[in-house]
Design a protein around this nucleic acid. Structure first.
Length: 221
DNA sequence: GCGACAG
DNA sequence: ATCTTGTCGC
């Protein structure tokens, strides 16, 4: 698929923060998704092994999760892991994988945060600007913000707030397991993101698109 | 100053 | 993220 080249990935952590401030206003995180029109969903993930990053984008049919296509890409891992700057560590290799992707899905589900970010531009939102296609975020841990206790049943959730703003949701995707942190990416909104994640659950804590991408990224070839 | 901190 | 077997709990 074709991507929009918005900037270079060869920058310092300090300049990356400035770039986030310059890009944040372009992110659309208040646009509802029409779940009834979604026919394909792609999971996005990156694994790191011996200083080599491998990106995986796996497209699945929705809502039956049949595999359609998986695009992979590899690159030396250069940018360090800095909380809040994950998109600069995984962005370039992800763009390589997206460029190889033939089937453009209706929405991309990232393993990481989106609007739930100190500057409201986590990896799902940032890369969403390059994609120009709806994205949502599903993180396994909380990057920032706070929330009250989440109920014990699958589907229970509580808003995550940061500086008096609701930026995401702590969602119980499976009883007995810790919640996941859902947020809007780009061209989506929190409510739609929570609905889509819930619609992508089977018998595990993580939604199928993310599980599929994680599995594909972990196996080098 | 101290603690928190996606993957 | 990654290093790693068995084990406790819903």
């Amino acid at each position: 698929m074709k991507l929009k080249h918005l900037h270079s990935w060869d920058i310092t952590p300090k300049d990356a923060v400035q770039l986030q401030h310059a890009l944040r206003d372009q992110v659309i995180a208040d646009r509802p998704l029409d779940l009834s029109k979604i026919r394909t969903v792609a999971g996005v993930d990156v694994s790191v092994k011996n200083n080599v990053s491998q990106a995986a984008v796996t497209v699945l049919t929705f809502p039956d999760f049949k595999p359609v296509e998986t695009a992979l890409a590899q690159r030396p891992t250069t940018f360090p892991y800095v909380p809040g700057l994950l998109s600069f560590r995984e962005g370039e290799v992800l763009v390589d994988a997206f460029t190889k992707l033939k089937n453009v899905p209706d929405v991309f589900m990232f393993d990481g945060s989106g609007y739930l970010h100190p500057r409201r531009i986590g990896i799902a939102s940032h890369i969403g600007l390059w994609l120009g296609v709806p994205t949502i975020a599903n993180a396994k841990n909380r990057l920032c913000g706070a929330h009250d206790g989440v109920g014990p049943e699958r589907g229970d959730w509580r808003p995550v707030t940061h500086k008096d703003e609701v930026i995401g949701a702590a969602l119980r995707t499976k009883a007995g397991c810790k919640p996941v942190f859902v947020s809007a990416g780009h061209l989506s909104d929190l409510e739609s993101a929570v609905s889509l994640v819930m619609s992508c659950l089977t018998k595990y804590r993580l939604p199928e698109p993310v599980r599929a991408a994680h599995k594909a990224a972990g196996v080098f070839g």
